[in-house]
C-alpha cells in the first residue's frame, strides 16, 4: 500500500500558541486514520493544514509524494484531490441539495451538468436522500445536512477524505445515520483522516488511532491498542474522562 498522505515535522502556531508541535503522520491508501484528543489538542488544525486552509509554519506535507506545503504549488489544484467535511456542515444555503453537490464537479472539474446531476443522484439514492435532491438545506435535519455534505465532498472522487468532528453538532439520534455512511466508505476502501469524539465508532473503522495532546501525537497504534490498552498516562486519563462522560 502506498502512502497517500505524509506529514513530516509539521509545526503550526496561532498568536504564539503552538497548536501543532513537530507532528509527523503517514496515511496509507485505503486506510482510516482516527485522531482523538481533547478539544484544542490540534485535531481540527491538523486537518485544515492538510487541506491548505491554514499555512504551516514549518515541516512538510506530501500528497501522493508531491510536496503540497510548497508555496509555489497551486492550492486549488491540491484541493481538487481532497475532500473535507466540516463539523457545522457548511452547505450553501442558497443552493438546493443537488446544486450543492454538483457545483464543484461542474465548475471545477468541468463535468457536463447532466452527467454531474446523474452522478449526484446515484450517490443520493445510495444514501437514501434522493427525495431531498431539490430541497434547500434549511429544510433538512442536521443528520441529513451532514450526509449531503459528505456526498458533496465525495462527488469529486477525492484521494483522501478529511472529516472534522462531523457528528459533534448532531444530537445522539442523528449521529448514527451519519456514521453509517462513513462505515460504508471505509468498506469501499476510501482513504480517510477523521477527528472524532465517538470512541465506539473509532474502534469500528480505525486502522490507526492517534491520540493528540498539545499538538503532538502521544500515542498511536491500532484501535485495540490505543483505546483498549493505552500505554501513555495522558491517553489513559483522556479515555477515562471520555468513559465517564459516557461515550465509550
Amino acid at each position: 500500500m502506498s502512502n497517500v498522505l505524509e506529514l513530516v515535522n509539521v509545526r503550526k502556531s496561532f498568536d504564539n500558541e503552538l497548536v501543532l508541535n513537530d507532528l509527523s503522520l503517514t496515511v496509507k491508501e485505503h486506510t482510516a486514520t482516527v485522531l482523538i484528543g481533547a478539544s484544542g489538542s490540534g485535531k481540527s488544525t491538523l486537518l485544515r493544514c492538510i487541506n491548505l486552509l491554514e499555512t504551516i509554519d514549518d515541516g512538510q506535507i506530501f500528497l501522493d509524494g508531491q510536496e503540497i506545503s510548497d508555496p509555489l504549488i497551486s492550492v486549488d489544484e491540491v484541493r481538487r484531490r481532497l475532500g473535507m467535511v466540516f463539523q457545522s456542515f457548511n452547505l450553501f444555503p442558497h443552493k438546493t441539495v443537488l446544486e450543492n453537490i454538483t457545483l464543484s464537479p461542474i465548475k471545477v472539474h468541468g463535468i457536463a451538468p447532466d452527467q454531474a446531476r446523474d452522478q449526484a443522484m446515484v450517490l443520493l439514492k445510495r444514501f437514501d436522500l434522493a427525495d431531498k435532491a431539490d430541497q434547500y438545506p434549511d429544510r433538512l435535519s442536521g443528520g441529513q445536512q451532514q450526509r449531503v455534505a459528505i456526498i458533496r465532498s465525495l462527488a469529486v472522487n477525492p484521494r483522501v477524505l478529511l472529516l472534522d468532528e462531523i457528528t459533534s453538532a448532531l444530537d445522539p439520534v442523528l449521529v448514527n445515520e451519519v456514521l453509517s455512511i462513513v462505515r460504508d466508505l471505509k468498506h469501499d476502501g476510501m482513504t480517510m483522516v477523521l477527528a472524532t469524539h465517538e470512541m465506539g465508532f473509532a474502534t469500528q473503522v480505525a486502522d490507526e488511532v492517534c491520540f493528540l495532546e498539545s499538538g503532538m501525537i502521544l500515542e498511536r497504534g491500532s484501535a485495540e491498542q490505543v483505546l483498549k490498552n493505552p500505554q501513555n498516562a495522558k491517553t489513559k486519563d483522556f479515555l477515562k474522562r471520555v468513559h465517564e462522560a459516557g461515550r465509550l
Binding site: 489544484e77 484541493r79 473535507m84 457548511n90 450553501f92 442558497h94 471545477v108 465532498s153
Partner: peptide
C-alpha cells in the same frame, strides 16, 4: 468564513467562490 472555507475546500478558486457562493448570498 465557513462558507468560503467549504467552497475553497471543494476546489473552487477565489473568483468562483465569490461568484457562486458568497455574492448570491
Amino acid at each position: 468564513p465557513s462558507q468560503r472555507a467549504a467552497a475553497r475546500s471543494l476546489g473552487l478558486t477565489s473568483g468562483q467562490t465569490m461568484r457562486f457562493v458568497v455574492l448570491p448570498q
